[in-house]
Amino acid sequence: MALLRLAGRRLALAVPGLLGVIVVTFLLNRALPGDPAAFFAGPAATRQAIEEIRARLGLDKSVPEQFVYYVRDLARGDLGTSLTTGQPVLRDLATRLPASLELTLAGLALAVTVALPLGVLSATRPGSWVDHLARVVTTAGVSLPIFFTGLLLVYVFYFLLGWAPAPLGRLDAFSTAPRQVTGFFVVDAVLAHDGALAWAALRQLALPAVTLGLFAMAPIARMTRASMLGVLGSEFIRTARAAGLAPRTVLVTYALRNALLPVITLLGMVFSFLLGANVLVEKVFAWPGVGSYALEALIASDYAPVQGFVLLMATLYVFLNLTIDIVYGLVDPRVRIEA
């Protein structure tokens, strides 16, 4: 019950954020270089044709009016049409989003599964080799340009060792995509009981996911270590030890659950980085997600997809932060009950 109230309140708080996002994308839309009407009309258009297009696009209206039209179009799910693909932007994004999400979530999952134990281990054994390893990994993780990490991995695991497939998208040329259920190829292939296909999809996913994971691992491990060190030194841990609780209970039920709180908050920031890094990784691995879609459009000066992409990413991020707030409330009663 308290949790529902918390969710409602956070949802209300997310609304101004979303509004801000819409205003900013609208402003960016208006600030586009050149005259969109002239651009859409093409180089051979007459002045009259340009004016017609201007009127059709609503560009002859005042800025507030244009904003109203913009919001109305958004409400209808109309993000414009891509000049490159000739399709509505919304449909393009919808078909490509699962690829990006699969990659981002795989990267995040990988990062969390490695970074949490690494952070905990280095906090419980400060100065040990695990601690030093964690320090090297985290410093390298925040210093390595993500596109560079990707290229290094490709060179080592594709060119030198031949373990990984060519960095060319989600499936090799001989496979066909599984029937869409979740849009995540690995999951869909498993659901279709096609082990070989799942393996093929997993092989394609491995390197880009590891690239993202290495990048996201650093801040998570660092925060886990710092937070765990802080919690382990706190008084209630001393109480738990004085009461003779089993070391496992002290470490997991008492210390880790408390130490996770700042890590959960940090995940929002990490996700923001991941969504940006996704664009770079998709480019390196020719991954057919929304990032590479936006990039192709950007190079071709096709702005509607870029706008749609930015809006999509921002909306996704707002909802992700909402989820994080709710998860935080689940773990921390102080937030839940005071809501």
Binding site: L28, A31, F273, L274, L275, M313
Partner: peptide
Amino acid sequence: TRVTDTIMAFPLFVLAMAIVAALG
């Protein structure tokens, strides 16, 4: 606060992309 919150509502690298795309 509103301005900084709005900036932070975007994934930052994506926002940078959008700004460069829009401004030139």
